[in-house]
Write a protein that binds this DNA or RNA. Sequence first.
DNA 1: TCACACATAGAAAGCGCTTGCTGCAACGCT
DNA 2: AGCGTTGCAGCAAGCGCTTTCTATGTGTGA
Lengths: 349, 349
Amino acid sequence: MTVTLADVAARAQVSPATVSRVLNGNYPVAATTRDRVLRAVDELDYVLNGPASALAAATSDLVGILVNDIADPFFGIMAAAIQSEIGGPGGRAGGERLGVVCNTGGSPERELTYLTLLQRQRAAAVVLTGGAVENTTHAAAVATKLRKLADAGTRVVLCGRPPAPADAEAVALTFDNRGGGRELTEHLIGLGHRRMGYIAGPEERTTTRHRLEGHRAALAAHGIADDPAWTVHGRYDRRAGYEATLELLRREPSLTAVVAANDTVALGACAALRDSGLRIPDDVSVVGFDDLPFSVDAVPALTTVRLPLSEAGARAGRIAMGREEAPDGGIVTVQGELMVRGSTGVPKG
Amino acid sequence: MTVTLADVAARAQVSPATVSRVLNGNYPVAATTRDRVLRAVDELDYVLNGPASALAAATSDLVGILVNDIADPFFGIMAAAIQSEIGGPGGRAGGERLGVVCNTGGSPERELTYLTLLQRQRAAAVVLTGGAVENTTHAAAVATKLRKLADAGTRVVLCGRPPAPADAEAVALTFDNRGGGRELTEHLIGLGHRRMGYIAGPEERTTTRHRLEGHRAALAAHGIADDPAWTVHGRYDRRAGYEATLELLRREPSLTAVVAANDTVALGACAALRDSGLRIPDDVSVVGFDDLPFSVDAVPALTTVRLPLSEAGARAGRIAMGREEAPDGGIVTVQGELMVRGSTGVPKG
DNA sequence: TCACACATAGAAAGCGCTTGCTGCAACGCT
DNA sequence: AGCGTTGCAGCAAGCGCTTTCTATGTGTGA
């Protein structure tokens, strides 16, 4: 029924071993023989059996990419960049690998299950993107799993995700969330803001915590009291931003600025402010984080911190493929860049 | 080094066959034996070797999801919905399958290569999302490939993609792009617009063509002449929308409305209009397509056609898993819903 | 009590490929 | 001319699992 290596070998009048070597190209094969084999492959329309070679060679050409939410461009952009580098079709030279984007939905259990699935497939590499959940027992479970993967020869790269202490020797590209958060708030302080609400992401997430810490560091540095009531947690989506803003306004109607955990949340915040009859930035300034493509199109355009998502993803992909040296020490912190736009201004009051 | 089925068998004092049967659960195994095996699996921290079972069983638990642009929420949303249904971790019951999101970047070659890669992996199913390229030779190549996949037992489902004539018996969920396009334009005509620019997507794409046809059908139905100069093609991104709008304005400064191929493009159009000193909808109305999450947040909120991306994706996922009957005839057309919002109004002039 | 069906476990034959090792020319060296 | 190299191709042993077929023990009806 299906064409096998042996069929090709028979047709090309060589041994299966030779065909295998031609296909893998890591063993000297005479040019004329190679051509004969290649022709046979073509004529028979042969397609290698992936599982069989993975079994025999003890490695597969799958590369796992774990994301928290594939519907969120933050992850979509990184995933696209990673995939473009792991040499899938259209990628650079080298083996054709299959980039597998796995959507964990931010759930620790799913993350773990996906890692097991990838381990089961003997994945060549795994890239974990985005913030991690800061639950000790879960973090330990993930670290254990990652260690096992690494031991089994799977390359592990973190992208936009701080290495947990237990992750030890993993290669990591992390974003300077703390620094970005601080810059954003200092920008607002510089404009004269003192009463700023903060819409944080879900609790127990590294990204959430780091950005919030940056915000607080800025407040502290300028001697501004940090009223816990001015911080509201929620998911990283528009709706959460909308509701959190309404809640913030209820708690403290005199706010002059809203600092959102990311651009998507900021958009929701803008909508809530508008619906409350407030003008941006005249009445209230708003800042986001990430600088997703749509942020520049918001009205007014969003002041935010640009994260080089695409570049970081590409680099992570290259490292995962072993095409680029892992950085010294294994960890690199990628800086964001403050983008001042129309959504922030001098407070009226 | 690594734990194998045999190790588990030895530990549980049963034969490898029994362990396999316990793990696959499709053969009667006495409860006490099963427990013993399961305990051994646990103690040994055994992880099934995917390639090996795929080889032996001649099927794998991979499901391919092909998208044109993973960074675009249009695809991200569908991909997320599909993945949530194919029973990956967190999905419903049933085998744990690994959803593989493949980013074709809209390139026919990549699409083909990915299909080959999936064929090589003996994927259990493949879901193709989004518009197809209307290049005859390429379409034929894809159809051939799909037929081969189907013959090899891979379930093939199209989601938001019209079946090419050659795709014959494939199951397809397609969006009513033509109908949506028509509705949008009729809405504008109803408001009194007569001079409307159209920003189309890339040529040679089914989605592009269908939406444009809907637009033209509406014009024709109302006896409005269709000036080809008022249609500009471009990519499906913000920037293309921005530039196309500028171009349109240059060609015909008296336009009262801009019809964009999708919401992302519409956002770019809005930016261009604003930068040109025009107000929306007072000077120019704008409509999009898809109703992506951010569209309601645009200022003014975008009038568009809502496509049930999530629902369609979920259904496609279920069909791919064989958990839902394929529709009669194999093809279902999913309707969009016109969402009238602030970006459209009565023309001034 | 004996034959027979039923339930459960094992033996063993692959699945299609990779790769270490062996075999054998043709070649260059002294 | 003799012998060690070098360059290519083949042999065959698995890789770890699934599954058919067979064997065994237990319960049933006559």
